[in-house]
């Protein structure tokens, strides 16, 4: 796809912002233009967190997304808030472990992945975000698995590099699901 506009949203602490950052970094490694914009308003403290990621062949104009090609949600309130921002024909990926409600939209593709539950069973619930990115990558080919792994190395502090093989397993799970 030439232009991917992704809104990722959930609770603070679920790794929403860092998942967006890894994705943007991988996009940059694909020689695409990328932007990553976090919500930095007062809602960040203890509430919802979201970020806008654009990966494009063209120069990026506004980094602010009023609409998105893909929405990834890790809690119910985020689905309520952003469901209508998805373009017709777009994609909603939800963490079905935490988001019970089915989106009402009939003109978008909806995928539920039990990301938090699976990540918990894999030994680290913090990788739920990576599982959801795996689903996104499988659906859109937005970045390659190889570049995703390099992006993990570039964005994680070196003391966390030992976790990368497990994160790649989490990504695999999401891609296969």
């Amino acid at each position: 796809m030439a232009d991917q506009q992704i809104i990722m949203a959930g609770f603070g602490g679920q790794g929403i912002l860092s998942a967006g950052r890894i994705l943007a970094y991988a996009g940059m490694l694909e020689n695409k233009n990328v932007s990553w914009l976090p919500s930095y308003g007062p809602e960040m403290r203890g509430g919802t967190a979201n970020c806008n990621v654009i990966i494009s062949d063209e120069v990026i104009g506004s980094p602010i997304l009023n609409t998105a090609t893909t929405l990834i949600v890790m809690n119910g309130p985020s689905l309520d808030k952003f469901e209508n921002a998805v373009e017709s024909g777009g994609i909603i990926i939800k963490d079905s472990s935490l988001v019970q409600r089915t989106p009402e939209r009939k003109d978008v593709e909806v995928y539920g992945v039990p990301a938090t539950e699976t990540a918990f069973n894999m030994g680290n619930p913090a990788f739920a975000n990576i599982i959801l990115l795996g689903k996104l990558i499988a659906l859109t080919n937005i970045v390659s698995k190889e570049n995703f792994e390099v992006a993990l190395k570039k964005t994680l502090p070196s003391k966390k590099h030992s976790l990368i093989p497990v994160e790649m397993k989490a990504l695999e799970f999401g891609m296969q699901y």
Binding site: V34, S35, W36, L37, P38, I60, P63
Partner: peptide
């Protein structure tokens, strides 16, 4: 502004 300050780009 805060968008330029907070956003990431290459």
């Amino acid at each position: 502004d805060g968008i330029l300050g907070q956003m990431m780009e290459s």
